[in-house]
Each structure stands twice: as C-alpha cells, then as structure tokens.
Design a binder for these strands. Structure first.
Ligand SMILES: [Mn+2]
Ligand SMILES: [Mn+2]
Ligand SMILES: [Zn+2]
Ligand SMILES: [Zn+2]
Lengths: 140, 140
DNA sequence: ACTTGTTTGCAACATCGTTGCAAAATTATT
DNA sequence: AATAATTTTGCAACGATGTTGCAAACAAGT
C-alpha cells in the first residue's frame, strides 16, 4: 500500500518525502475530499502549514488531486482518476456537499450534463455542485 | 432611479442609509456580479471594509442579492432578479465566469438541468458554474 | 560518501474576514 | 419640531488564511 503511494510520486517525477507520502496516504484512506485544515488535523499537526500548501499545489499541478469550489468559499481537494496529468485535468463529474456533515464527495459516476449557453459565450469547463444530505446523514 | 432603490430598502424593512443606497446602486449600474473588493474600489474607498461586509450579508439575508461560488475561491454577489425574499432564494440559473476578464454573469435564461444523483443522497440545491470566454472577450 | 538539486520549516508579511464597542445616523414617538 | 429609541457605522483589535525569502535538512544521482 505504501509502496503504491511511493510509485505515484515516482511516476510524477516527485521526490519521495515523508510529507508527501503522508498527505497522499490521507487522501487514499479517507474516501472524500479534504481541505487544508483537514489535512492539518489528520496529520497530527506534524507538518508546517506552508509545506502543506506547497504540497497540495504541487499535487494539483501534477494532476494527482483536483480542487473543488464550495458555496462557503473554501477549497477542498480530492484524488484524480487515472487520466489526469501535468496540466491535464479531466475531472468532469458532479460534486456533492452534505449540508449536515460537511463532507464533499466526488460523484464519479454522475457526469456533467451539457449546458446551453447564450450565443457569443464559449464554455471551457463546467462545475456542478450539488448541496444536500448525504447517504450517511440521511434520516432513517 | 434613486427613488426605486430607496423603495427596495424600505420594502425589506431596512433603514435607508447612504451606504446601502450606494452599494445597491452599484449593483444596478454594473450589470454583473461584484466582489467585496469590486465594491470597495467602485465606491471610491469611502466606506469602511466592515460596513461593506455587513451590508452584503444583510442584502443576502433579505434576498436582495445572492452569492456565487467561483473556482478560484472568491465570493461574488449579484442581484436577485426572481422573487427572492428573507430566507428564500430561488436563483436557479447558470453562472458564467470569463477566464479572460474575470467577469461573472448570471445567465438568467439558462436554467439548471436536472442531475441524477446516486441513491441515498438527496439534493437541495444545485450550482452550475461555467468557465470560458464571454461575448466581450471573444476573439473576432 | 560526496555532490547537486529539491524540499522543508521558520519568520515575516499580506490579505481577508470577524467581533466589541462607542459615536453617528436613522426611525419612531411625543 | 424636538426628543427618545433603535439601528447603523467606523474604528480598533483580533483571528484565520495564504504567500514569500531564505537557510538548514533532505533526497537523488554519481
Ligand atoms: Mn472530484
Ligand atoms: Mn445569479
Ligand atoms: Zn453527510
Ligand atoms: Zn470576458
């Protein structure tokens, strides 16, 4: 498992450091989007804030993780599927934010519908954010 | 014109102050979404930062303006055209952000498509953000 | 083991947003 | 119109978030 994570770094021409291994591991273990603050807490506050910022930025640039905008103006990050690379992001799926627990999910299987925008505008990328209640928080 | 803006405030049980008139006027004159920083600049830096924050918050609560999340993690605000009220927002239209000039538009005529989310999840609100090039920035 | 280039942690700084409180402005009442 | 009650404003102080420069620590290639 740790070996697989090491490989991800190597395949992206990144030095293998404790910091990067630990952060990447957090994304693999928690199957949800993580914020900078989440990582700071989950890592036991061992890493410097600045290092986390720089690591996340590096991972985004390499196509290892992608950013998700949220209505409350905080960035969260989630693992990309295979076909993203340096400068190439193809995370064309819907994102779901639970209003109860705050968890952000990548709905990989839910694709983005096509949007008819007015004449004169040209679309390059579409983000769909769904707010609601997730399956864990659903009242039974 | 100024009279109409005064009425909006009165209809929402808000005191009519220079500050609120000026900010509301900015939204009516510029037909696009404005950020806190935009308002600070457009108003000639006459109003205190804090007052602008509080005014925007009040307007959102009253259903006069709505917030728009953006991919670069900054909030912009735009007038509610539909009949939004205190606690009731119905701004179900697509938002377009121009990557060239940074302008955010409300595409009032472009409605939100229905999204099929997985079983167990329940959707309350959907935000659709389209990034691209707007009609003003289009290469001719 | 040594060298080279990269990464980290720290400090210092900048920006953004919030809160408490007294002064000022607005609205309600006499 | 004058006064009282309420609301809003501006300031100061603070906290949270994000950025940059730089020297020490580290990882990778020889
Ligand atoms: Mn995603
Ligand atoms: Mn809008
Ligand atoms: Zn939930
Ligand atoms: Zn434009």
């Amino acid at each position: 498992m740790d070996e697989a994570i090491t490989d991800i770094l190597k395949h992206n021409q990144l030095s293998v450091t404790d910091n990067r291994l630990k952060i990447l591991e957090l994304f693999h273990n928690n199957n949800k989007a993580l914020s900078h603050a989440d990582i700071e807490h989950l890592s036991g506050k061992n890493f410097d804030r600045v290092t986390i910022y720089r690591t996340l930025q590096t991972f985004v640039e390499k196509g290892i993780i992608h950013t998700i905008p949220t209505a409350d103006n905080s960035i969260v990050y989630a693992l990309c599927k295979e076909d993203c690379g340096e400068g190439h992001h193809h995370d064309d799926h819907v994102h779901f934010i639970c209003d109860k627990c705050g968890t952000t999910y990548c709905l990989e299987q839910t694709s983005i519908p096509s949007i008819n925008i007015p004449k004169g505008f040209s679309a390059h990328r579409v983000n769909v954010l769904v707010n609601g209640v997730c399956k864990n928080c659903r009242p039974s």
